[in-house]
């Protein structure tokens, strides 16, 4: 059981990064469907940086930078030019997959240097790591996993306990009201879209640098789309994102351990999406204000139309 929970957290970590990235973006009122593309760009940049320099820190930073740059394209299109968000996001996915394959041709058959791999081995946190079960699952993992839930907590505090977070949520709900209260909507949107993209890039890098430390094209294999579903599943709450991501990570691998029960593996593949639909149905029946998406989500903001 513990081994399953450990594997679950590892499988959920790339989802957690991507989910947090998309969550931050959506909080600013922008729906970015380019998660998959940004993850792939982050994966190839992280792998490239790690492979050429042998430096684990540069691998992470390279991934974040590349993901952020990809998001900048999206931000320019949707915030400055006010292009359709759905179309821009989809374009970013296709663009990202292409860039990743193209740049990745340089790394075919290449393996991450030992310096980087050894930087991401499991490191036990003293004391906390000795707690039964929880210690092994949460506090005996690699740095990337620790970073994942730390960032989630930081984003949670930022959103709900700081003035900036309040302003951000205001923009997501009603950009014109936020604008009239003196918040610089454009700057906020740009910053959060870019940071969101950086997180997505890091999620991709986890796959390429830590999980499978050898260049494999299209390594995300659809995880970006699961992350978009996850944002809905966790009701735009970064704390819930931790549990949601690990849960979805668990759902994606539980099939391997339950196959002797003769349940079809396809059923488990469909499970994350089924769960998302169920959550959507429940939250739309309850119509709770806290569970609903930011009101301004997907709408381009024109100051002149106030």
């Amino acid at each position: 059981m513990t081994t399953f929970l450990v594997a679950m957290v590892i499988a959920g970590t790339p989802l957690l990064f991507a989910t947090l990235g998309e969550l931050l973006t959506e909080k600013s009122g922008n729906l970015n469907l380019g998660v998959e593309g940004m993850m792939l760009i982050g994966a190839v940049a992280g792998f490239g940086a790690g492979y050429t320099t042998g430096n684990p820190l540069l691998a992470i930073m390279g991934a974040a930078l590349a993901g952020g740059l990809a998001a900048l394209i999206y931000a320019f299109l949707t915030v400055t030019l006010r292009a359709n968000q759905v179309v821009s996001g989809l374009a970013l996915t296709i663009f990202g997959a292409g860039v990743s394959s193209f740049v990745g041709t340089n790394f075919i058959g290449k393996k991450m240097p030992v310096e980087v791999i050894s930087a991401f081995v499991k490191i036990k946190i003293p004391l906390l790591g000795d707690i039964p079960v929880i210690g092994d699952v949460l506090f005996n993992q690699d740095y990337f996993v620790y970073m994942g839930y730390m960032i989630a907590i930081v984003i949670g505090i930022y959103l709900y306990n700081t003035r900036f977070g309040l302003s951000l949520r205001a923009i997501g709900e009603n950009p014109s009201a936020a604008d009239s209260s003196g918040i610089n909507v454009t700057v906020y949107k740009y910053v959060h879209i870019i940071v969101g993209g950086a997180l997505c890039g890091m999620g991709g890098a986890y796959l390429a640098v830590v999980a499978v430390p050898q260049w494999q094209d299209n390594i995300t294999a659809g995880r970006g789309w699961i992350a978009i579903a996850l944002v809905i599943f966790v009701k735009w709450n970064p704390y819930l994102a931790i549990f949601g991501s690990y849960l979805f990570g668990g759902l994606s691998i539980i099939g391997f351990r339950l196959q002797h029960l003769n349940i079809s593996p396809q059923f488990f593949d469909a499970l994350p999406y089924l769960v998302t639909i169920v959550v959507l149905v429940i939250s739309s029946i309850r119509k709770s204000k806290e569970d609903s998406p930011p009101k301004g989500l997907g709408e381009p903001y024109f100051r002149e139309e106030r």
Binding site: T3, F4, A7, I10, A11, P14, L207, A211, V212, Q216, N218, I219, A221, G222, R223, S252, I253, G255, F256, R257, Q259, P265, Q266, D269
Partner: peptide
């Protein structure tokens, strides 16, 4: 012992499947 991944190409998922077998 066999596990099905229902994939031809998902490196991370196939790694998880192998880990499940090793745990077993």
């Amino acid at each position: 012992e066999v596990v099905w991944t229902s994939t031809w190409y998902d490196p991370a998922k196939e790694k998880d499947a192998a880990i499940a077998l090793l745990d077993g």
